[in-house]
Amino acid sequence: MVMALASVDGKTASEDLASKPLTVRGLTVSYGEKPAVFSVDMTLTQGRMTAIVGPNGAGKSTLLKAALGIISPLAGKALVYGQPLKTQRHRIAYVPQRASVDWDFPTRVIDVVLMGLQRELGLLGRVRARHQARAMECLDRVGMRDFAERQIGQLSGGQQQRVFLARALAQSADLYMLDEPFAGVDAATERAIISVLKSLRAEGKTVVAVHHDLATVAEYFDDIFLINTRKVAEGPVESTFTAENLNQTYGGRLAMAQIDQLELAAG
């Protein structure tokens, strides 16, 4: 006898999972004896922007990397649109922390963006006019067209971050995962990046980013995922970005005046 899958709001469980860009269940990662992430569940909603927020050492970047398969978890799993990661990598674009990249590697800006077309270029890597044009369009979108022939190491930190975002855009992904995209960048670059991310959301894409600046959470994001090794809370900013959840996440390290101000911004 074949058992039917349980129905969730008129959908089967498998159909519901297939509509979710990323579903993480029971994810645990350890560096040595102490877990960096412990039994974390997370679910992203299609077409929304989610901030992963928590104190330093809370496991934010670790969670992102484990969900991407960059580091191996001790337990748990991550599904992309209801399927194993290995079958869905083409639907994901990843922007790493700028500090983790070797900027001394001798390559041009345009070549970095073309790396985003690797699946399309194939093993031979033959770049055609249409590939070059697409890479230039992506650079234009982040305001870096005029730097296409520049060596990547000659750029400022903010310019380098824009180039890596352009590489992600070239992948034409459905899910964009960014690790601290605003860390160490100038105000103009931050405005440019958030403008591009919001335009991706307007196109129906899903964005998740590790984020540190609590003051901009309500302005930049739709949803928030609060973590301090374990998940504290997740959901829409307006209902989840609360004093209670912030206190639990930061262990009382935030001043009450700051929390009140943040709650006010979240509406």
Rank of each mutant, 00 (worst) to 15 (best):
V2F: 00
M3R: 15
G10R: 10
S19G: 00
K20H: 09
T23V: 05
G26C: 08
V29L: 01
F38L: 05
S39G: 12
V40F: 02
V40N: 02
T43Q: 02
M49K: 11
A51V: 05
A51C: 06
G54R: 00
G54H: 00
N56D: 15
L64E: 01
K65S: 00
K65V: 00
A66K: 03
G69K: 06
P73K: 05
L74H: 08
K77P: 00
K77D: 01
A78Y: 00
L79V: 03
V80S: 05
P84V: 06
T87S: 14
R91T: 10
I92V: 15
A93I: 05
P96Y: 08
R98S: 14
S100K: 15
F105K: 14
V109E: 09
I110V: 09
V113C: 08
L114R: 10
M115I: 07
G116N: 10
L117G: 08
R119P: 04
G125L: 10
V127F: 08
Q132P: 11
R134D: 08
E137L: 10
C138N: 09
R145A: 09
R145L: 08
F147S: 09
E149H: 13
G153W: 12
L155N: 01
G157K: 14
R167G: 04
D174L: 13
Y176M: 09
P181T: 11
A183E: 06
D186S: 08
A187T: 12
A187P: 09
A188S: 07
E190V: 14
E190S: 13
E190R: 15
I194C: 14
S199G: 14
R201Y: 07
T206G: 02
V208L: 02
V208C: 01
H211Y: 13
A215T: 14
A215S: 12
A218R: 07
I224E: 02
N228L: 00
T240G: 07
E244P: 00
Y250A: 09
L262S: 07
